[in-house]
């Protein structure tokens, strides 16, 4: 028991590792604040594109979504970060992460929004058009607000996954929280920083998880 505490919950080690962890934490926050809004906006664009009349656009969306859902995000990120520079496209580490996440998460968010849009009754669209709103105005003011409300639980749970996935950024040497923790671990020969990182994730994500289960319960109550 003592040895467990000494190597996993060691306060001295924690004190030493804290500055590195803190920097990693801020990097993770920064990544999240860039990657999640990008993914949500991209997803919305993907979902809207899948509602247009043009077959070509709709098929392009299907291929895009299928491809990026099946393609491993780690490989995608490595290709963008280390492969594209050969084509003189160097986005830098942060840019590479942003693009890889945009491509990967927009396909997931896109499918969620699409399900939401499909859940809005056709009559809503017709009522809006009958008052003279354009197709785009109808989407923006009538369909998307309702669609979003209908899929909030899925949006939250996907966002939880995306936040956890930001640890991939470490492969392009961005010192996010888990990377920092592993670095601290190898410097101190102690697992405490890893546990601390885990606890930071837990504390930060727990409110989202709570929120999610409140929505899920409310949905059950409604059915």
């Amino acid at each position: 028991m003592e040895r467990l505490v000494a190597s996993f919950f060691n306060l001295d080690i924690l004190q030493q590792a804290w500055p590195i962890l803190l920097e990693g934490f801020w990097m993770t926050v920064k990544l999240t604040l860039v990657v999640v809004p990008l993914g949500v906006a991209g997803g919305l664009a993907v979902a809207l594109a899948s509602t247009v009349r043009s077959r070509l656009v709709r098929w392009t969306v299907v291929v895009y979504v299928d491809f990026f859902r099946a393609f491993p995000p780690l490989v995608l990120l490595m290709f963008i970060a280390f492969g594209l520079p050969f084509l003189k496209i160097d986005l830098g580490a942060f840019g590479a992460v942003a693009l890889a996440f945009l491509l990967n998460t927009s396909s997931y968010y896109g499918e969620i929004f699409r399900a939401g849009i499909e859940s809005v009754p056709r009559g809503q669209y017709e009522a809006a058009r009958s008052t003279g709103l354009s197709a785009l105005q109808t989407m923006g003011w009538v369909v998307v607000p309702q669609a979003t409300r209908n899929v909030i639980p899925d949006l939250i749970s996907n966002t939880l996954e995306v936040v956890k996935l930001t640890s991939l950024a470490s492969v392009v040497a961005l010192p996010e929280l888990l990377f920092a923790a592993r670095q601290a671990q190898s410097l101190t020969y102690n697992a405490t920083p890893i546990i601390a990182a885990g606890i930071i994730y837990l504390v930060c994500l727990w409110p989202l998880v709570r929120l999610l289960s409140r929505f899920e319960h409310r949905q059950i109550a409604l059915h």
């Binding site: 009559g123 809503q124 017709e126 009522a127 809006a128 607000p145 309702q146």
Partner: peptide, 10 residues
């Protein structure tokens, strides 16, 4: 005016 009203619920 529609049979099912179609008011915007939000």
């Amino acid at each position: 005016v529609f049979q099912s009203f179609n008011l915007y619920p939000h």
